[in-house]
Design a protein around this nucleic acid. Structure first.
Lengths: 213, 213
DNA sequence: GTCTATAAACAGATAGAC
DNA sequence: GTCTATCTGTTTATAGAC
């Protein structure tokens, strides 16, 4: 029996260290020595378990996808809600996603890792797309369709949903810029509520405008 | 007389190479050898002109700020337009910013460099804030105030403007995800027009909702 | 100012003992 | 599976000729 925090042993420790360090400093700025040190493992363990640094990155992306699925799959889809119910569910998703993106601690370092892969166009972007971006987008499109009566897979709806997602993502990616201009020290619960309220108001404005067309 | 593309000589060639390569591959993934090669300069020139790689990054950020100012300062501010005029100017800015962010070639590699500094929380983020983010945000706030009658510096207006900016930024940052889901090969003039139309529609929806409150 | 040559530190990967 | 020790290549930085 070892002192490793994971029963599965060193392998998972290394993956966890990878998600954390790759997310914090980026892939090329992270050395295998740092990874091994943080994981409490030997330098040679990376080559032994994965083959090399690049393959560790892939393993991190896969683990990211697994955890992402677990964190997302607990939301059942209502079959055919009314427009009003669909609007409420959209608002609830906005709140949940913002809590996940902006909250003090999303599970592990998943969000930074995801954003790094996006910024670096890394191999994990494929996983990000499959496990997070695409399912969420489709789910929102379905709800948007119920809320407006439009075809959920029409170009207009898909674009509208992206413009909604963009608002949420930017408040995370542009956090240093937003905080500075707003005079905030960072994102606390109060600030997240304010952002959530703003985006929900935008949602209602967009839905209302759609109905009046 | 040398064959350098810049009359000011090697120094500017290195900065240009830095903006390009740092933007494309990131700071730590770019070696001084690549930089020197692209600039047509010697490896030792970086240490001679700047002191080191890190200082070259700072020089790139400053040059970025200079070019950004030049590219932005050509828009005169109307003194006190009507609500309708303010709305039209907001729409015009949206179109211009999207053309800059999403267009085939913004001037030099300025946009990728900016996004990298944002993603890496690099020292250039300060310059990005001063020369791009803050002036644009304040200008939009002023127009938003004219369009709605609200206090341009109120928290509500500042947040609303960020939610508008976020939509534009995300269509750039999330380009691989958006393109894939939309079934686009990339962003051409037609796609940019579509995005511009969507965000302009959102602008009108938000302004309308504000008026009816 | 620009070059060659090289120093000194660091990277990722591996061989082989245990 | 994990370790130490080391190999090989690359990194940034620098010394000194021109």
């Amino acid at each position: 029996m070892t002192t490793s925090p994971h029963p599965e042993g060193t392998r998972l420790d290394l993956i966890e260290a990878g998600i954390l360090l790759f997310g914090q400093k980026g892939f090329s700025a992270t050395s295998v020595r740092e990874l091994a040190a943080l994981a409490g493992a030997n330098i040679a363990a990376i080559a032994y378990h994965f083959g090399g640094k690049e393959e560790l990155r892939l393993a991190c992306a896969e683990e990211f996808g697994r955890q992402m699925r677990d964190a997302t799959d607990k939301a059942p889809v209502s079959p055919a809600p009314t427009a009003s119910k669909a609007r409420d569910e959209l608002a609830a998703i906005i709140q949940a996603v913002l809590a996940f993106l902006l909250g003090a601690r999303g599970p592990g370092g998943l969000v930074p890792f995801m954003l790094r892969e996006l910024a670096e166009n890394g191999p994990g972007i494929e996983v990000v797309y499959r496990t997070f971006a695409d399912p969420m987008h489709r789910r929102l499109c379905t709800l948007w369709g119920h809320a407006t009566g439009l075809d959920p897979e029409s170009e207009a709806v898909r674009l509208a949903v992206f413009s909604l997602i963009g608002q949420m993502m930017y408040f995370r990616i542009g956090q240093p810029i937003v905080s500075r201009r707003m005079g905030w020290a960072g994102y606390g619960p109060a600030e997240i509520d304010q952002i959530s309220g703003q985006i929900t108001a935008n949602l209602d404005a967009m839905l209302t405008a759609e109905k009046e067309t």
